[in-house]
Computed example of a mutant assay.
Amino acid sequence: MLDEIHAAFDRGDFVPYLGPGVLTLAGADCALPYSPEALVGKLTAAATVPHKIRNNLTAAAQFIENFKHRKTITTVMTKTFTDATPPTALHRWLAVRPRLPLFVNAWYDDLPQKALAGRSAWGMAQGVSQAEHFGAWVHYFRPDGSQIEGGARVTDSSGAKAPADAPDETLSWTTLLYQPIGSVAPASNFIISDSDYVEILTEIDIQTPIPEAVRSIRRGKSFLFLGCRFSTQLERSFARQIMKRSSDRHFAVLPEAPTRNEARFLREQNIVRIDMPLDIFVAKLTADAFGATELASPAEA
């Protein structure tokens, strides 16, 4: 299976899809939250929310937005994810793939940007909140963090829903970093509250919020899910819609026993489950590039 995955990356036929669990590879000293549960703890430490929603990330964020201010959410999220943590070996390995047309990071950290910094001809497409950027689904950024104006409107001149078209400048990119729920860098864009997701989920089935470039690049590609769970409807919906009309076979490193909903999702989407701890899988995947000793898990070292 590893040979198959390596070969697919070499051909440019694989799309890495990273979730919050990838941050566990950064080590015990990493201050970045590596799960929704860890992140909601950061939010509720900064603002009081009702006990019944203290463990619900989107609901807690919505409460803070309603009774404090949206700026409170943005400030806490920016403080939480602004960190000097360097890219992990996985991020570095992905960043030097000769053919990496699409890189999906479904969390708020900026480790992919840091890893891609030495690469040429790449840029970012980030989902943005309607609460802060009404009239846009996505913002595009150059590697230096400057925003590219144009494209990605929610409505066209007639007021109808419009797809997220990319500015012409993005057509020259050989790698597109797609961050569907935003990122701390370069502009602190965060899709996190209930209302943020409602806006997207009302349109995501017809693909409107997903950039046209993503829809084009994914054709015929297989997705490799790393650090992801599919236990909630949100997680499944985003994964399903982002890999829609791509290849008919995908992979997910999922060492924990899948829930019933996860197992059903894996079957429906023809996702091959790789039953292996993430750190061991990454060590095997990247051994040729960095050496097995550097990436060995604590148990193996």
Rank of each mutant, 00 (worst) to 15 (best):
L176I: 11
Q233Y: 09
T58S: 14
T170K: 02
A252N: 07
A131Q: 14
I217Y: 06
E37C: 00
S146W: 00
F141D: 03
A252V: 07
D165L: 08
N270P: 05
D109N: 03
W93S: 02
P112L: 04
A95V: 03
I5Y: 07
I206N: 03
G123P: 02
S157D: 07
W173C: 07
T293K: 07
E256L: 10
T58V: 06
G151W: 02
A8E: 13
L32R: 03
E203F: 09
M1R: 11
G123F: 04
E149R: 07
R153L: 09
A301Y: 01
F251C: 07
W107Y: 12
L57H: 06
R236F: 11
L100P: 11
P33V: 02
P143R: 03
P87D: 02
P20S: 15
Q233H: 11
F225W: 10
I181M: 09
H250Q: 06
W137Q: 03
I206W: 04
K68S: 09
F63P: 07
R229A: 12
D10P: 01
P180Y: 10
S183D: 04
T72V: 15
A89I: 08
E294M: 09
S35T: 10
T208Y: 15
V198W: 05
L254K: 03
N55Q: 14
A131I: 04
N270I: 12
P16A: 11
A187P: 05
D248N: 13
P16V: 08
E65V: 00
V49P: 14
I200T: 07
E37T: 08
